[in-house]
């Protein structure tokens, strides 16, 4: 059996398992949708009251939010098992992953496919379409490519900053740092960072690169790179930043996984 076939089987198995409780499955997809779009509903109501925040109109913020959601849900779709890492390590489930003849990365990717993530993807697509149609973007071929790659880059940056704290679980047996960082990305990610004060903006650009999740790609698409705290060429290379960060994070994750101590039973 080829590796690809095994991966596909793993996805199907988890999907079938979740479809057993049909109404629950529907509720979970709806949950994904509600969870991700509610953050936007808040922006819609607030910005709708006053027409713009931080110099960005409702349509522009919609696009930013859509990019943020698309990146986040793409990552969640690809690596949903990572969220369960605390249980995997504490209960020794990780043992089973180690003895299986499939690369660890693939097991993390396909082993715990959460169908509910599809709801999140759906929400992201709706917002992206709404944003792209409402904002007047001067489309060029490079911009078209950049748009697609920037979403992938956004997913990879999210991924890198989930893998790094997740790696600590092998040492400290808690995945709470992962949730904190995840929270920072979802809380701040969908806004033009111009609304935050300078120091926080610096932190969110250079230390925890939330800026590159949506604000930077959005500014590139709308030709607003002048207001970014980074030069335009860095803004254009945001997908590349994603690749580098993700590769580094995976390396750290594998190194840290050597700290894993089985439960002994």
């Amino acid at each position: 059996m080829s590796t690809l076939a095994i991966c596909w089987d793993m996805v199907l198995t988890s999907a079938r398992e979740q479809m057993q409780y049909r109404s629950n499955f529907l509720i979970e997809v709806a949950f994904g949708l509600v969870f991700q779009t509610l953050g936007f509903a808040f922006i819609w109501v607030v910005v709708g009251q006053v027409s713009a925040i931080g110099g960005w109109s409702l349509a522009e913020v919609t696009l930013l939010y859509g990019i943020q959601l698309a990146g986040g849900s793409l990552w969640a779709l690809a690596f949903s098992r990572l969220m369960l890492i605390e249980g995997l390590v504490r209960e020794g489930e990780y043992d089973r992953m180690l003895v299986r003849p499939l690369p660890l990365a693939l097991q993390f990717m396909f082993g715990g496919f959460r169908i509910a993530t599809l709801g999140e993807v759906l929400g992201a697509v709706v917002l992206l379409v709404a944003g792209v149609t409402a904002v007047d973007i001067a489309w060029t071929v490079p911009k078209g490519f950049y748009f697609v790659l920037a979403i992938a880059g956004s997913a990879m940056i999210r991924g890198a900053f989930e893998l790094l704290p997740a790696a600590l679980t092998f040492r400290y047996l808690t995945s709470s740092p992962m949730w904190v960082i995840n929270g920072i990305f979802t809380e701040f990610g969908g806004y033009p960072l111009t609304i935050f004060e300078r120091r926080l903006r610096g932190f969110l650009t250079f230390l925890v690169p939330v800026a590159f999740i949506a604000w930077v790609p959005g500014a590139v698409l709308m030709d607003r790179t002048a207001e970014l705290p980074v030069p335009a060429w860095i803004a254009w290379s945001s997908p590349l930043i994603g690749v580098v960060l993700l590769a580094f994070a995976w390396w750290v994750f594998l190194r840290e996984s050597r700290m894993y101590q089985s439960t002994g039973s």
């Binding site: 607030v46 910005v47 006053v50 904190v180 929270g183 809380e187 806004y191 609304i195």
Partner: peptide, 26 residues
Amino acid sequence: AQIPLSCLIFLVQFYVLRVVWEAAYA
């Protein structure tokens, strides 16, 4: 051990809420 963490998350969420509203009032 979860308590300081929950407090921190609470304050971050609340801070964002405040800033967004402030930006809206502008």
